[in-house]
Design a protein around this nucleic acid. Structure first.
Lengths: 149, 149
DNA sequence: TTGACAAACGTGCATATGCTCTTATGTCCA
DNA sequence: TGGACATAAGAGCATATGCACGTTTGTCAA
């Protein structure tokens, strides 16, 4: 019996990427009215929750490459949703903070996010979703340095 | 007690995207010697397993937007790893197939992929990984049309 | 047959992703 | 105090992602 092409992919990387594409598309549709992508919503949300921090720190918190976050900030800065200024203690560093406009947009987008979250969990199951998030968090924070990388 | 910023993210979308970034970076390092990205490896692998097919069909199989796959094919075509030709039955459609060079590169990259897969499962657990792939496959194939999208 | 509709694909646009290399700044020890 | 090293960030490069819109081709019924 040949391998079923529609079975779960044997590759862990492909599996998580496919799921990410699908879920991102779904959430993006709900966020579209507020003109924020899921990435942008995540950044604003995290920055608002954790308070002002550097690009380096936020990138680490987002499990994102530093240079990627640096670019992702640009559209948010251009629209005045995130403030960027040189740190006074360490002039190499920049301080990121959510502006009042950013907070307003974040609140607006949160309504759409809640609908997306509810719709997803309605289809997938709230319990399963919680378990999935926990496992994915383990993956995202897994120490892979020892794994012969 | 305030929310722990390092806890698992409450957003399903963020959780899966963070995990995808992390795992992709890990696999990419193992694939780098063969000069293939994980996306390219996935495409070659799937196309080789399922045989020649159209952009539309392959995109669906990859859980990827049609236009995204169309662009992802370009570097592979440029390097002669994938052949692209007009279909004779349906002139709107294009037939994609893995070339002999593509097959050779795929085999070469598979060695790196196996190391990545082993290293990841060594750190995360083979059983857990299998369960994770199954759940992620459910997510990727979940019917979200009913979910108020 | 032809006209309406559907399907496959491409283009333009904007963001997302991370590597490599470079620059500016901070730290710390000899 | 200098010089070695580390750290924060930017620039260039290439790919990845998907939406909106347009074009070509197929299908099917009036």
């Amino acid at each position: 019996m040949p391998t079923d092409p529609n079975a779960a992919p044997p590759c862990n990387c492909l599996a998580v990427r496919q799921a990410a594409r699908r879920v991102t598309q779904f959430y993006d549709r709900f966020l579209a009215p507020s003109a924020l992508r899921t990435t942008q919503f995540s950044i604003l949300s995290r920055l608002n929750r954790s308070g002002p921090m550097s690009i380096h720190a936020l990138a680490e918190a987002m499990v994102m490459d530093r240079t990627t976050l640096g670019r992702n900030i640009l559209p948010l800065e251009r629209e005045g949703l995130v403030g960027v200024e040189q740190s006074t203690e360490d002039r190499r560093s920049k301080n990121l903070k959510v502006t009042p406009e950013g907070l307003a947009r974040l609140k607006e987008a949160t309504a759409g996010w809640k609908r997306a979250q509810s719709a997803f969990e309605g289809a997938f199951g709230a319990e399963r979703a919680a378990a999935l998030r926990a496992v994915l968090h383990d993956v995202a924070t897994l120490d892979l340095d020892e794994a012969g990388a």
